[in-house]
Amino acid sequence: MVMLEVKDFGKRFTSHHLNTTRKAVEGISFSLEQGGFIGIVGKSGSGKSTILKSIYRTYLPDEGEIWFDSERFGRIDLLKAEERQVIWLRKHEIGYVSQFLNVMPRTTARELVEQALLGMGESHEAATIKAEQSLRHFDLDERLWDTFPNTFSGGEKLRLNIAIATVKKPRLLLLDEPTASLDYQSKLKVREVIEKLKADGTTLVGIFHDLEFMEGLCDCVYDMNEKALRGMPEVQR
């Protein structure tokens, strides 16, 4: 079953300050089966994040179609979905993880994960249990659960971020360079986390800046340069 289908997608940005309009991406098409993992590769500035942010509707896209197979709404074009539908999908079906953690102040790691569940209408009891399971699943040190994430390390923030995004079991998870600021050891941890997500059957679209990291993880890659899907490239060692 096709979970995500991007058709002739394009996005331009207008800067009123410079009085210019710039095309960030155009002519992007690919599709992704349920449970699959596509990595997007390309130079910095080639528009990888633009694609992800447009799927999540953080960017208001202006060309093409992005079809998503929603449990609630059926097949839905995310570019034309109403704002209230997008909000619902973000709460229940589509997750987004970047290297940045942007959360409510004075809220503990545990509360943040619980709140994602409460927002979906789960009971307090169920939220407590599932939040703990999730934090444990992604190896966040138990001593950090009741502290505030402002002082977490990059790796800890990322694991919390992934816990928040995945605890609601999204059908589609978008990974926007989550490993960008991590050292090798932390990256290995993230790799384990992503392997767990794949094993859980989550459909993934991800951007990673090193190919080595993606090897054996992605089913295929979308090359921004060739504008086509292809198998995982061999990594030159």
Binding site: F13, S15, H16, H17, K53, T58, L60
Partner: peptide, 21 residues
């Protein structure tokens, strides 16, 4: 008008852009 993160990251009106800058 729009989703809050969209207003902040992809503002379209000249004034909104200025506000975000």
């Amino acid at each position: 008008s729009g989703l809050t993160d969209q207003i902040l990251e992809d503002p379209n009106h000249a004034y909104t852009q200025q506000l975000v800058y």
